[in-house]
Design a protein around this nucleic acid. Structure first.
Lengths: 233, 233
DNA sequence: CAGTGGTCTAGACCACACT
DNA sequence: GTGTGGTCTAGACCACTGG
């Protein structure tokens, strides 16, 4: 483990025990205390600042931040998301097949409309209650044999372990909708109930699209909480 | 202007002209070319990587990223948000007064329930059409004289210029709702229409809460688009 | 294997905050 | 003024990619 990571985690633990607005030792002191250079200290502190654990004031010092939600929005699978909320994730696979991409999917995944894609429609459960209706498309070429695997769990783990596909980036669009008809019935909602629709294009480390997901979440049991920062102008 | 910022903007402009996956010069070459040290080059490249303009592969090089939406979600005012969408922002002030905080507002702003807060309810317009219904609370002590100012424009600019309050951080919760009654009428929507409710606690550079806003956006004309990253594990 | 980005060092000077 | 974080340098070694 690199020194800056080690130091970051060590400081993160120490900072968690301190009161907000307490001053940390100076960067030069931390460098001496932990036997590293000041540049390494700064790399560790930069990460803590980005994660909202501390703030820095030029000329004054580094201080413990006020307690906040401070979950920056990060790319997670449904399973991970539910785990973080203390709910047990589950799945009911409604559709699992291979179809031509079609124009909309092809555009999102940067394919030709007649190229094959794996389609997966799942009802996602939290503590056995319907939470989200999810439709996922993958380029067939990136996930050979996927349809033969167990599709009830986390696809992200499956993608990484079985197909060497790491999702590291995603473009998302969040919108409010109302659900009707079959969707409402599947989600155990009255027609006209509000829901969050999240459209996502997941990408690998090189920015190539590898996943296109549309999720519809029950509004009564789901919201999105996160911390945002102002652009440094 | 620091060298790393100058270099970052210079590289950002150059990168914009190149095709995705084109390799940039090596860090050592860039250092020589621009007469700076490699550490400075790395600081500039790190910023470009964070903003999604390039990606780096250890052992291979630095490359131009695929074109994506790549707007990381950042803290913006309604006015700035509409400007970015090419719409002309406007306001109709419905309420502007001072009231006791009450328990809910007091908790969010870390005040006592009987401390005074400035309350502002505004119908926000985009190209003169209703877009969003917004209720804002400020601790009165942080914004003396605010009620006497022009409240139809950007509050963020007003806060910074008149009161030295810089919002740099916000905790947000996004939820889907349906609107009814007076809210629906104000937004020119049929009762039962979907809407995005955004609850925000804005904070200054030290993490102290200075603003509490609840906004209800018309779903038919508003969504949230942004790019997220996977936590580096 | 050569070359890349990732890490780390020891030092210097600057801009800013506080006293 | 003194001390802080912010910037910058020149150099070194490591881990990884790719021919």
């Amino acid at each position: 483990m690199p020194k800056h990571e080690w130091l970051r985690e060590r400081l993160r633990a120490e900072v968690a025990e301190l009161s907000p607005r307490t001053a940390l030792p100076t960067e030069r002191e931390l460098a001496v205390q932990h036997g590293v250079s000041r540049a390494t200290v700064r790399q560790a502190l930069r990460a803590l600042e980005e994660s909202g654990a501390v703030y820095r004031v030029q000329g004054a010092g580094t201080f413990v931040a006020d307690t906040t939600i401070s979950k920056s929005l990060s790319l997670t699978s449904f399973s991970e998301d539910m785990d973080a909320r203390g709910l047990r994730p589950g799945s009911r696979v409604l559709v699992a097949d291979e179809v031509p991409a079609g124009s909309a999917v092809a555009e999102d995944l940067q394919l030709s409309p007649d190229e094959p894609v794996v389609r997966l429609v799942r009802l996602r459960l939290a503590d056995n209650a319907p939470m989200c209706l999810e439709t996922v498309y993958f380029p067939s070429g990136r996930v050979p044999g996927l349809l033969g695997a167990d599709l009830t769990g986390s696809l992200y783990a499956l993608l990484e372990e079985e197909h060497g596909v790491r999702l590291v980036l995603a473009d998302q669009v969040v919108k409010a909708v109302t659900v009707d008809g079959a969707d409402a019935a599947l989600l155990a909602l009255a027609p006209g109930s509000p829901a969050l629709r999240i459209h996502r294009i997941g990408r690998d480390e090189r920015g190539r699209p590898v996943e296109r997901t549309t999720s519809v979440y029950r509004a009564d049991h789901y919201d999105i909480a996160f911390t945002i920062r102002r652009e440094t102008s």
